[in-house]
């Protein structure tokens, strides 16, 4: 009951924090796609490099986010962004690499050898093969990776409130420091709801982007 009253009286704050949260995740995962998809495609050319890249990305993802923020503070202070928006985005960008790179790599590698040979035999250049065959066929799996990244990083972004990046984590951190269970609970529920909604919307988008001939 108390919680509902809290929500009703703080609607605009809640909306503002949610938007901040979404903006952070969208920008960071967006950048992560621009980086991870090309890397995932590039490493299909060389198995050894692929192993090194995927291994590195898995190590990054095991670093606890609090520790990662801590490491970045002195490094980014050099350019005057030790805390706030920049380290938050960078952290999410790094955490997103594993699901995005791995899914892109697996998807491209899984295009059947027959199709690849048909594309070569028909006289497509390697860029045409990527654009016309390999990427369209990989879209569903790449999108699944993006979904994983988004859902995971909505959680990570909640912690970024501690370094002043804003977002719904602000409610959680305030709830803890002020011993105010209302803010803590509202913040936690909002983060979970956001993750569920994002996952549902992205699943719908994934279906839209899947080539019609692959839907059954």
């Amino acid at each position: 009951m108390e919680i509902i009253t809290y929500v009703m009286s703080n609607l605009s704050l809640l909306a503002q924090l949610t938007l901040e949260h979404i903006a952070l995740v969208v920008v960071a995962v967006g950048l992560a796609c621009l980086m991870g998809v090309p890397i995932g495609i590039a490493i299909t050319q060389n198995e050894r490099i692929a192993r090194v890249v995927l291994y590195t990305a898995s190590i990054i993802i095991t670093i606890p986010s609090i520790a990662l923020f801590g490491i970045m503070i002195p490094v980014l202070s050099v350019i005057g962004h030790g805390i706030g928006y920049v380290p938050a985005v960078i952290a999410v960008l790094l955490y997103s690499q594993l699901p995005i790179i791995r899914n892109t790599y697996t998807a491209i590698n899984n295009v059947s050898p027959g199709l690849r040979e048909a594309a070569r035999g028909i006289g497509m250049t390697s860029m045409q093969r990527l654009r016309l065959v390999e990427i369209p066929l990989s879209v569903p799996i790449i999108m699944a990776g993006v979904r994983t990244a988004v859902v995971m990083n909505i959680g990570v972004m909640a912690i970024a409130a501690y370094i002043g990046a804003g977002g719904l984590g602000v409610l959680i951190s305030r709830g803890i420091s002020q011993s105010d269970p209302r803010q803590l609970i509202v913040g936690a529920i909002a983060v979970s709801l956001l993750a569920i909604v994002a996952d549902t919307l992205l699943l719908a988008l994934q279906k839209r982007l899947t080539p019609k001939g692959l839907q059954s």
Binding site: S112, G114, L115, E117, A118, A119, R120, G121, I122, G123, M124, T125, L132, V133, P136, L137, P211, K212, G213, L214
Partner: peptide, 20 residues
């Protein structure tokens, strides 16, 4: 690439592009 575009190629696995 030019050579292959001038040679019709039918592979054993048919190899139609499922996204097209």
């Amino acid at each position: 690439v030019t050579l292959r575009r001038n040679i019709g190629y039918v592979i054993q696995q048919i190899g139609l592009f499922p996204n097209m």
